[in-house]
Write a protein that binds this DNA or RNA. Structure first.
Lengths: 234, 234
DNA sequence: CGGCATCCGGGAAGATACTG
DNA sequence: CAGTATCTTCCCGGATGCCG
């Protein structure tokens, strides 16, 4: 009875495979389930705890998150780890290979922003914002610029370093920056991607800007969006 | 009653969204459903008919294919078109933006080949094989090479052109090539990715090679696979 | 035959409540 | 805080059948 159940589950799992030697098909078996790629996204800037993942992934339920973390761990993409004392807290972290999934997230994201259906006025996590900077940075526009920009987004703090035509984004202490933004991620996105003037966001208290003001005005121009696709396409 | 049904379906669809401004999340709403990306893959080298898609996607059922084509069409990724007479046949074709999804497929595929779980000994479609050439071509190894290689894969015929350190793959008449392979796609894959000697494949009739033999021996070395990830990763 | 609607069974996702 | 347990709803996959 129990055995039969297991057999039937295995058969089902087998039927659910793509049975395709193509790397893309295998990739979909690894990260193609609902939520999987977004879990990876949230871990891309460092390990997180279960409940932090849960709150940064609006709409995921606890049991689905548990299942995804299990299958990602089984696939060698995520490891469950316990932080050393005194923290002694359990976190989930990408493996080295897991971190290499970032181009997938970037390529998919860059392509999808061309969709007419893309709505930038939705909730946005801090990690998404930082990854969007990595993805959308235009080296030509940032030419000659050397600066460190800090972000205080709720409890998390990030540092974006620009220099030599490259951009680095990571967790870090915002106090060391030439300029810091303080506010919710969607407000920063409104300035960078929505074209909302910084002054307007400051006026209603949505965003606080400390430090080099001219740098702030330039920073928001460094991440051009690709043109929308023609709705009446070929 | 009917109205209520529609409302409840809309609510369900709404609940199923990711509610996330991140481009990646929107990308997953567009192509994240099961089979969707593989349907796009099969269309990447030109339009196909419903039943050709069905047979090139082993395991997909007719109703799921119908659903995917509908939602891809709604998303502006695919168009349904009727070929001009005398064919007068209905085909599905990627929009210009749809063709731009190729880097997604490539990035995911390249990343996934590093998985320990990737099994190259599975069925493989002709399009998958051609796209894998585009994805895995090593320009350094192909330096100085100028050649046209033809493939007769069942009813379909393809041409791969190599020159100036670039590789192009498209549907085309294999007769114009310096060299042609005739056989099933997995047999070609065995030679290129599995390290099976061409002579062995010829011996049991799995593969037929016509034309420049030395070119064939070189061709199979042009697509190195990335190293597998360490199973006991960090 | 090609494309699509319909019905059914099983399983995955979602919501809520509960436990260590 | 970090998950389980449970229940419902919905999607996937298979089969059948309709229609051009």
């Amino acid at each position: 009875m129990e055995l039969e159940k297991i057999t039937s589950r295995d058969e089902a799992a087998y039927r659910r495979r793509y049975d395709d030697a193509c790397g893309t098909a295998h990739g979909l078996e690894l990260v193609g389930e609902r939520w999987a790629l977004l879990v990876i996204r949230e871990l891309m800037l460092g390990p997180k705890r279960f409940n932090d993942l849960r709150s940064d992934l609006p709409g995921i339920s606890a049991n689905v998150l548990t299942q995804r973390l299990e299958s990602l761990e089984a696939g060698g993409i995520v490891v469950k780890r316990r932080l050393p004392p005194p923290a002694s807290v359990q976190v989930y972290e990408l493996t080295e290979w897991g971190y290499q999934a970032e181009p997938i997230i970037q390529t998919l994201g860059r392509w999808a922003t061309r969709s007419p259906g893309h709505d930038p006025n939705l909730p946005l996590s801090a990690v998404s914002l930082m990854l969007s900077f990595r993805t959308m940075f235009d080296a030509a526009r940032g030419k000659g610029l050397k600066a460190t920009v800090g972000f205080r987004l709720g409890a998390e703090s990030y540092l974006v370093r620009i220099g030599d035509g490259e951009l680095h984004a990571a967790r870090g202490d915002a106090d060391q920056a030439d300029l810091t933004f303080t506010g919710a991620p969607p407000m920063v996105a409104a300035a960078v991607y929505g074209g909302v003037p910084l002054s307007a966001l400051e006026a209603d208290g949505a965003l606080k800007i400390d430090g080099d003001r001219a740098l702030a005005e330039r920073f928001v121009t460094l991440f051009p969006l690709p043109p929308k696709t023609n709705a009446a396409a070929k």
